[in-house]
C-alpha cells in the first residue's frame, strides 16, 4: 500500500458516500444517471468475484464490501425507493449502456493477461469501469447545469483513478516485475474521459459560478 493508492481508495470511497448521502438525505436522484450506477454495480460485481476465495487484507475485503454494498444500494434507491424513483428523469437518461458492455466483453475475450473465467471477467470490469461514466456525462450535457453534490461526486470519481495512475507509476519504479499494461491503459482512458468535465468544473470553481456544461 502506498499513499497514492490510499488517497485513491479514500477519494473513491468519498465519491460513493457523497452520492449515497445525497440520495438518502434529500431523497432525490435528480441529475444522476441510473445507467452509470448500474454499470458500476456490474463493475464491482465482476471485479470482486474473488472476494470469497482470495483474502488479501481486512482493508481490501472491507472496501470491496463497501463498494459492492453502496453501488447496489444506490441502484436499489433509484429503481425501487418510492420517493427517490420519482425524481429519476428516465427520458433524459437514455444512453444505451448495454451497447457499452458488449464491446468491453469482446475486448476482454481478446485482450487479457490470462484466459480464465475470473481473469476475463476481471478484465471486463476494468474496461467497463473506464467507460461507465459516459451515460452520466451525456446526461449532464443534456440537463446542462448540475447540482453541487452531483458535481462533487463526478469530480471525486474522476480523481480517484488519477491517484491510481500515480500509484501505478510508484509501484512500477519500486516493485520489480510490476507491469500491468491493460490496467494502466484502461485507467488512463478512464481518467481522460473526465478531462473535459474537470476543465469546466475548475472554471466554475475559479469564477465561482454554477457549473454549466456547454451544449
Amino acid at each position: 500500500m502506498n499513499i497514492f493508492r490510499l488517497a485513491g481508495d479514500m477519494t473513491h470511497l468519498a465519491s460513493v458516500l457523497v452520492l449515497l448521502l445525497k440520495i438518502h438525505t434529500i431523497k432525490s436522484c435528480a441529475g444522476v444517471s441510473l445507467k452509470t450506477q448500474e454499470l458500476y454495480a456490474i463493475v464491482f460485481a465482476t471485479r470482486y468475484l474473488d472476494i470469497l476465495t482470495s483474502f488479501v487484507s481486512i482493508y481490501n475485503t472491507l472496501m470491496k464490501l463497501i463498494f459492492l454494498g453502496s453501488s447496489f444500494s444506490i441502484v436499489w434507491y433509484m429503481k425501487y425507493h418510492k420517493t427517490v424513483r420519482r425524481t429519476y428523469d428516465r427520458d433524459q437518461d437514455t444512453f444505451r449502456h448495454w451497447f457499452l458492455m458488449l464491446p468491453c466483453l469482446l475486448l476482454a475475450l481478446l485482450i487479457h493477461e490470462k484466459f480464465t473465467f475470473f481473469e476475463v471477467l476481471w478484465t471486463f470490469s476494468l474496461y467497463l469501469e473506464a467507460v461507465a461514466i459516459l451515460p452520466q456525462l451525456v446526461l449532464l450535457q443534456r440537463t446542462r447545469n448540475i447540482d453541487n453534490l452531483t458535481g462533487q461526486y463526478i469530480f471525486l470519481l474522476g480523481g480517484y483513478r488519477g491517484f491510481y495512475i500515480l500509484n501505478w507509476i510508484y509501484r512500477y519504479f519500486t516493485e520489480p516485475h510490476y507491469v500491468h499494461w491493460i490496467t494502466w491503459i484502461a485507467g488512463l482512458v478512464q481518467t481522460l474521459l473526465y478531462a473535459d468535465f474537470f476543465y469546466y468544473y475548475f472554471l466554475s470553481w475559479k469564477n465561482n459560478k454554477k457549473l454549466q456544461l456547454p451544449a
Partner: peptide
C-alpha cells in the same frame, strides 16, 4: 514466471 501475484488493488 513471476509468482502468482494476488490482485491486491481494488
Amino acid at each position: 514466471r513471476p509468482s502468482q501475484i494476488k490482485k491486491d488493488e481494488l
